[in-house]
Nucleic acid binder design. Structure first.
Length: 591
DNA sequence: GCCGTTTTCGGCCCGACTGTTTTCAGTCG
């Protein structure tokens, strides 16, 4: 969050957007977009690179390298400043509305003087847009709905964003001498998919000193309210932070209280009450506060209520309290259970790291296997060909020889067509070690047809995993609609795993659907869909989502040993060779 | 603006969908 790379990427991205609104050359715009993305995902800190070294980043040439250097040296990028002067700031925000691009943003500005979302809403209300060329009542209605949906989701930030800010804030708080302990709590600690504001908890015997120190932290832009134990602040990125300070003796009680959820807390308090006790952020005590039963650790509090400690990701009052009391909490999947990643991309298609870089990164993570699954030909924009795919396979086999201890699975991410068919012919499909099939187009089909579409892909003998099964994009695109029960049952029957995609804007399957799927006998692949080395870290969000879905490690195929995984992945290929053999030998003679 | 077993110039992400048109512009993945 604090990386110089993010700041540079933000500046380049803004430059690209402003250029698009101003009507700049589309190839030039795309060059800036590409560079922004490459810088954001680049493994090295741009502050450690000189202008020449910057051009080693793919998509960064001499011009952009110079602009990056200018920004890092002076804090400004002159071309960006010029464009900011030309294009009203509010206009850029309009691009966040799905369906509204730079051309139309520019059009409403030029012809109606609209330069902000509120003004756009006014114009919609007055039906002024339908008079413009290319607009009609339907486009007005679509835009109105898109804005409403965006605003509903816009108040919360994605887990990945909140997580990085919170980790950095906790680190910064830890540098204050008055802070004995610091942690994030709330929906973030429960790893919910979106986060409203960041709840921070600090243990200290000197709360005044902590409050004074808060304003001095690099990441804090403004402290809006500050009392004896509670403060509200805003980070430099505009994220709202709630800080609570408690004495170290009540750390556990406060952490449990502020982690929630509300439903979980209410349920716990009811149990305490039945025992003549009182549970608050200050501890589990007797009714009159005279006696403290437990307060310093969460474990003590749960134990005092005769139950096992409940992992934060389960605290939604979805049966975890009963399970904790009966001693039947599931053994949840953890990061260390995973032996590999089964959905990754390279520069062969839209990834930002080469095959070799991805392999090295997987090895550095201690993985035993890595599935490389670049896009398939029917995602036309990626321009995949059979020749490129086969060349990659050769390179991969060669790399495998050089990286003992890391098995490389040559795969592909196929595109599930509207009729459920896939890329490539059966023979070519049979040559892969691993096949992920995903929906990348035609998102709004009739649910019945969508169900048929998915089940056909699931039942294809070569398909091992269905990638991001609902194809949602959090805050942007709703999940595709299908009969979840029918699809999950088909997956369980066919031995096709469903992915828990770890990308913070996907988290797909989500926690609830994963839990339903597990109950129906589905197995899962927790995968990153990494398009860069850094994306491999996103696996923690996939693991957290699986935890929230009560998924146990034995149900996740990438916790399995390589031989067991191989056996699972080869199901389709065995079936096919079986089928070929049957065709060759013909029908058996009766005898 | 970037980049090169097509190249130091001249390409660069193709195809579908939508809503508006009367042959297409804008947006998206």
């Amino acid at each position: 969050m604090l990386r110089a790379n993010d700041e540079v990427a933000a500046a380049l991205g803004e430059l690209a957007e402003l250029m698009a609104i101003a009507g700049g050359d589309s190839f030039r715009i795309r060059a800036y977009e590409k560079a922004a993305r490459a810088v954001a995902e680049h493994a090295l800190d741009v502050d450690t690179l000189d202008e020449h070294a910057l051009t080693a980043i793919p998509g960064v040439g001499s011009h952009i390298a110079a602009k990056i250097t200018e920004l890092r040296r002076t804090g400004r990028m002159s071309e960006l400043d010029d464009l900011r002067a030309q294009v009203p700031a509010g206009l850029r925000a309009l691009l966040d509305v799905p369906g509204l691009g730079p051309k139309r943003a520019r059009q409403v500005y030029d012809e109606l003087g609209i330069a902000s979302l509120p003004e756009l809403l006014d114009a919609l209300h007055q039906e002024r847009l339908r008079g413009l060329r290319g607009w009609g009542a339907t486009s007005e209605e679509n835009l109105r709905r898109a804005i409403a949906e965006t605003q509903q989701a816009g108040a919360r930030m994605q887990l990945g964003v909140a997580f990085e800010v919170a980790e950095e804030l906790v680190h910064e708080l830890g540098t204050l001498t008055a802070v004995a302990q610091a942690a994030y709590a709330g929906s973030l600690r429960r790893m919910c998919e979106t986060i409203g504001d960041i709840d921070l908890l600090v243990a200290s015997t000197n709360s005044k000193s902590v409050m004074d120190g808060l304003a001095t932290l690099p990441l804090i832009a403004e402290v809006r309210a500050s009392g004896h134990t509670k403060a509200v602040a805003v980070t430099t990125k505009g994220v709202r932070v709630d800080l609570r300070v408690v004495v170290p003796e009540v750390w556990g009680a406060a952490l449990a209280y502020f982690t929630g959820s509300k439903a979980h807390n209410v349920h716990l308090r009811r149990i305490a009450q039945r025992r003549g006790l009182k549970l608050s952020e200050y501890g589990l005590t007797s009714e009159d506060n005279a006696r403290v039963v437990a307060s310093t650790t969460e474990e003590e509090i749960y134990a005092a209520l005769d139950m096992a400690w409940v992992p934060p990701t389960l605290r939604e009052d979805h049966g975890e309290i009963e399970a904790a009391a009966e001693g039947t909490l599931p053994r949840l999947i953890e990061l260390k259970d995973l032996h590999g990643d089964l959905h990754t991309h390279t520069t062969l298609t839209d990834g930002l790291a080469s095959l070799e870089e991805m392999v090295q990164a997987a090895k550095a993570r201690g993985y035993r296997y890595l599935g490389v699954t670049d896009h398939a030909p029917l995602l036309y924009m990626e321009r995949m060909t059979k020749e490129k795919m086969l060349a990659q396979r050769e390179e991969l086999r060669a790399l495998e020889k050089r990286h003992r201890g890391l098995a490389l699975l040559h795969g592909s991410e196929l595109n599930i067509q509207p009729d459920g068919s896939l890329d490539w012919d059966d023979e070519t499909l049979g040559g892969f070690d691993l096949l992920v099939a995903s929906v990348h187009s035609h998102f709004s089909m009739d649910p019945e047809e969508m169900t048929t579409r998915l089940i056909r892909a699931i039942e294809h003998p070569a398909v091992n995993v269905i990638g991001h099964p609902t194809a949602r994009s959090i805050g942007h695109r709703p999940p595709i609609e299908f009969d979840t029960r029918a699809v999950f049952q088909a997956a369980a029957r066919a031995g096709t795993a469903l992915e828990i995609n770890s990308f913070p804007d996907r988290l797909d399957l989500n926690d609830e659907l994963a839990r339903v799927a597990q109950d129906l006998g589905v197995v899962f692949s927790i995968a990153t869909d990494a398009h860069s080395v850094r994306h491999l870290d996103n696996i923690r969000y996939g693991v957290a989502t699986a935890q929230r879905g009560w998924i146990s490690p034995d149900r996740v195929i990438n916790t399995w040993s390589l031989p067991k995984l191989h056996a699972f992945l080869s199901k389709g290929r065995r079936l096919r060779s079986h089928r070929r053999a049957a065709v060759k030998s013909g029908p058996r003679e009766p005898g």
